[in-house]
Amino acid sequence: MASAAATTAVPSGPVPFKDVDDGTVPEHTPKEEFGDLVAALPRRQQSILELRLYQGFWLPEHWVPGTVVFQRRFAPRPDDVVLASYPKCGTTWLKALAFAAAARAAHPPAAPGHPLRRLNPHDCVPFIDEIFAAGEEAKLDALPSPRLMNTHLPCTLLPTPVTAGGCRVVYVCRDPKDMVVSLWHFLRRTKPDLSFDETFESVCDGTVAAGPVWDHVLSYWRASVARPDRVLFLKYEDLLRDTGANVRRLAEFMGRPFTAAEEAAGDVAAVVELCSFDEMKGLEVNKAGSGTAGRYRAMPRDAFFRKGVAGDWANHMTPEMAARLDRIVREKLQGTGLAFA
């Protein structure tokens, strides 16, 4: 008789990261290893974050050692998919859509027990840079292929094997005016007295986490123009306008296109419904308590589900502020073929 080990099927990914992260992987920190490097970098305080200028971008100080290790040691698998975004540009939604679309064979989106009904999207798709910052890269090795991962790093800071086409990358961007509003609300969850003007000014002068924003966006835009087969560039506003069409694009890009039978069965609509803002915000797992896998362990879970709309900037920003940020972004993007409406 064959042994149980021989007959047990190896799980096929993507699987929820939290289901694999059982806490048994020993942690080590690269902070001490690269302490001198970090200390020598230009420093700037932005709200609750201490930033360091690393290779042209202002990164939270605790990201830098992990970024160095990530750049030097990460080995992508050919079927990996890296979900990238500037903070507060649709990260949580992209994670949910990508996971639901990629894992639908094992987890039908309409199933009551779907992982996204019991786990926050950040528990399903891990932040790579946070994993390396905590010295927990062995956890990535435990994930079965294909792996879904996320980063807030710009494309130019990704490891060379990734930017050379070693795996697929999906990037989502957002109107910078709405991003500023969302970022301010998010940061206020830990610093309630943070002024909107302070957040706005840090974005305008580029000294914001993972900024300058325009350089971050352009790094992925240029990569998508050069390698559209390896980098998919999405806009949050387009996702809002026609979620179904973009879910189809996303699934096809990840190598898991919807079949005619799935289309007829309504699977695309089921993914859209499962990952809709109202559906996700209403789930108990996304309302109660704090703590998720990875970067946001201390953030309240409901901080990731505020409004999920476009145009909310008009409720927070004066016309003069909006015109100023639009002008800065327009000048930075001039001649690239990318524009925000």
Score class of each variant (00 low, 15 high):
S3G: 12
S3N: 02
A6V: 02
A6N: 09
T8F: 01
G13R: 07
F17P: 00
D21E: 13
D22F: 09
T24A: 15
V25A: 14
E32W: 01
E32T: 07
F34S: 00
F34N: 01
F34Q: 00
L41W: 09
P42C: 04
P42H: 05
Q46N: 14
Q46M: 05
S47F: 04
L49D: 11
E50L: 13
E50A: 12
L51E: 06
L51T: 05
R52K: 13
Q55S: 15
Q55I: 03
F57C: 04
L59A: 03
F70G: 05
R72H: 10
R72T: 02
S85F: 04
T91L: 05
W93P: 02
L94R: 06
A96Y: 01
A106G: 15
A106E: 14
A106P: 00
H107D: 11
P108M: 09
P108Q: 08
P109E: 05
A111M: 03
P115D: 02
P115A: 06
R117F: 05
L119R: 11
C124P: 03
I131Y: 03
A134V: 06
G135L: 09
K139N: 15
L140Y: 07
P144T: 13
P144N: 11
P146W: 13
R147S: 12
R147V: 12
L148W: 12
C155M: 14
C155F: 15
P161Y: 13
A164E: 14
G165M: 04
G165T: 04
V169T: 15
R174W: 04
K177Y: 10
S182P: 03
S182C: 07
H185V: 05
H185K: 08
R188V: 01
R188E: 04
R189Q: 13
P192G: 05
F196D: 12
F196A: 11
E198G: 07
T199P: 09
F200P: 05
E201K: 10
V203A: 10
C204K: 12
C204I: 08
G206R: 03
T207M: 09
A209C: 07
V213W: 14
V213A: 13
H216Y: 03
R222I: 00
A223V: 00
S224E: 02
R227F: 09
P228K: 11
Y236Q: 03
Y236R: 02
R241K: 15
T243S: 14
A245C: 01
N246R: 15
L250P: 10
L250H: 07
M254Q: 10
R256L: 07
P257M: 13
T259F: 11
A264K: 06
A265Y: 03
D267H: 14
V272F: 04
L274T: 07
C275F: 02
S276N: 10
E279P: 00
E279L: 04
K281P: 00
K281Q: 15
V285L: 13
K287W: 04
K287Q: 15
S290H: 14
S290W: 15
T292C: 13
R297N: 11
R297D: 10
R297L: 07
D302N: 12
D302K: 10
F304G: 01
F305Q: 00
F305I: 02
G308E: 06
G308C: 08
V309I: 11
V309G: 00
A310N: 06
D312A: 14
D312H: 12
W313E: 07
T318I: 12
T318N: 08
A322K: 04
A323E: 15
R324N: 06
L325I: 05
I328R: 14
E331Y: 00
K332T: 01
L333K: 00
Q334N: 08
G335F: 12
T336F: 12
L338T: 09
